[in-house]
Design a protein around this nucleic acid. Structure first.
Lengths: 233, 233
DNA sequence: CACTATAAATAAGA
DNA sequence: TCTTATTTATAGTG
C-alpha cells in the first residue's frame, strides 16, 4: 500500500514538473538567464510597487540588464528619490550657512557614496577624537572612576576607525594598480548577447513610474570606459 | 500530502491561521505598516541580490521609509549604478566644481578619482565575465578543446578582480557599519537587534552593498565638506 | 507566452 | 522574534 493507491491513482498527466529549486549563482545558459532576468525583474518591480502602496515608502530602482538595457522604477519618481539620496548622503548638514541658491544644477563629477561616506567617517573620527579629549579633561576634574570604561571603548573606536580608513585607502591603491595592469595586458573584444525582443510593458500603478531605456549602444568591440550610453526618456 | 490529510483526520492543533490575503492599498494601522515595511523591504533587497547573482545585472535600490529612514542596496555599488543612470539621463559632462563653498577646500583625501576607477574596474570585470562566457559557449558548439588554456587564464583574471572588488566593498561596508554603530550608540537610542547592531549590514553575496542611513548623520561641529550637490536634471 | 507543480515570501499569531 | 498556514513568485515545459 502506498500513497498513490490511497489517493486513488491520479490519472491526470503531469504536464510539467513544476518549479524546481535553483542555486543562487550565476546562470550559465544564456537563454535561461535572460528569461530569468525578465521574470524576476518584473517580479522585483511589482514587489517595489506594492511596498510603496502598502507603506507609503518612496523607492527608486535602477537596473542594468546584463544585455546592456536599462530599466527603472520610481515612486514618486526615480529622480526625486535619487536626488534625496544624493543630498542626504552628501551633506546632511543643512545649508543654513552655505548659501547657494541655485535651484537646479548639474551634478558634479561622479563622486559618490564612497567619497561621501569616507568624508562622513573622517568627520566622525574627528568628532570622536574631540569627544575623547573632552572626556579626558572632564575626568581630571572629577573622581574619574566612572569613566574608565567609556574612555576605553572610545579609544578603541577611534583606533578602529583609523584602521579602517587607512586600510581602505591602501586597498584603493591596490585596486587602481591592478586595474591598470589588467587594462594594459588585454583589450578583449566585447560581445553582447544575442538579440532580445524589447518591450517593457508593465501596468504601472497610480503614481510610480517604470521605464526601459533602449538597448544603449554599448561599444560592440573595444571597450570604452567613457559612458557610451544614450539619452533616456 | 500525507496520510493524515488523506484520512481527513488532522488532529494537529492549528496555532495560527497562516498568511492571509491582503489588499494592495495603504495599510492604515501604524504598527502593521511598519512591520510590513520591514519584512517586505528585506524581501525586496533579497530579491534584488538574487537577481544580480543569477543574471549579472547591476542594480541600485533606494528606499525612503515612511519613518524617514533611508535604505540602500547596490551592486556593485549604489554609486556605480546611479552614476551610470545620471550620465545616461543627461549625457553631458560637466566639470563644474569650484564655485561656492570656499570655506573649506579640504579635499577629500585620496579618494578623489577612486569612483572613476572603481567603475572602470567593475566594467572591466563584467567585460571579462562576458568574454569568458562567450568563450565557454562557443566552446560548446565546437570540438571545444582548444580553449582551455585561454579560459583558465581568463578565469584567473576575473577572480582576481572579483577578489579586489569584493574586498573593497567589504571594507567599505565595515567602515559604514562602524560609523553607523558609533553614531547610533552615541546619538540615537536605537534598539540593537541580536544579529545586527543599528540596522546596518546584510551578508549576502560577493560584492553588492546594502546599508541603512540613519535619519540624520549630522556633522558634529562646524564641519564643511566644501562642496555639495544640488538638483540634477 | 500559458501552465503547473513547487519553492519562497509573508500576514497573523504567539 | 519565531511559527504556521497561505498566498505569491517562478523554474521548467509545451
Amino acid at each position: 500500500m502506498n500513497i498513490t493507491s490511497i489517493a486513488g491513482m491520479n490519472t491526470k498527466k503531469k504536464t510539467t514538473q513544476g518549479r524546481k529549486k535553483i542555486e543562487i549563482k550565476k546562470i550559465e545558459h544564456l537563454n535561461t538567464r535572460q528569461v530569468t532576468f525578465s521574470k524576476r525583474r518584473s517580479g522585483l518591480f511589482k514587489k517595489a510597487s506594492e511596498l510603496c502602496i502598502l507603506t507609503g515608502a518612496q523607492i527608486a530602482i535602477l537596473v542594468n540588464s546584463p544585455g546592456g538595457r536599462f530599466y527603472a522604477f520610481g515612486h514618486p519618481t526615480v529622480d526625486v528619490v535619487i536626488d534625496r539620496y544624493l543630498n542626504n548622503t552628501n551633506n546632511n548638514n543643512n545649508n543654513a550657512s552655505s548659501s547657494q541658491g541655485s535651484t537646479s544644477q548639474k551634478l558634479p563629477p561622479p563622486v559618490g557614496e564612497f567619497n561621501q561616506h569616507y568624508m562622513a567617517v573622517s568627520k566622525e573620527l574627528e568628532a570622536e577624537k574631540l569627544r575623547r579629549e573632552v572626556i579626558h579633561e572632564s575626568k581630571a576634574s572629577n573622581s574619574g572612576e566612572v569613566m574608565w570604561y567609556e574612555e576605553e571603548v572610545d579609544g578603541m573606536e577611534v583606533e578602529e576607525l583609523e584602521e579602517y580608513l587607512s586600510a581602505l585607502v591602501e586597498l584603493q591603491r591596490k585596486v587602481l594598480v591592478r586595474a591598470d595592469e589588467l587594462m594594459m595586458i588585454k583589450k578583449a573584444p566585447m560581445f553582447l548577447g544575442p538579440n532580445m525582443s524589447g518591450g517593457v510593458g508593465y501596468s504601472t500603478d497610480v503614481y510610480s513610474t517604470m521605464m526601459m531605456i533602449p538597448p544603449s549602444v554599448m561599444p560592440p568591440a573595444g571597450f570604452d570606459f567613457g559612458f557610451g550610453y544614450n539619452h533616456i526618456d
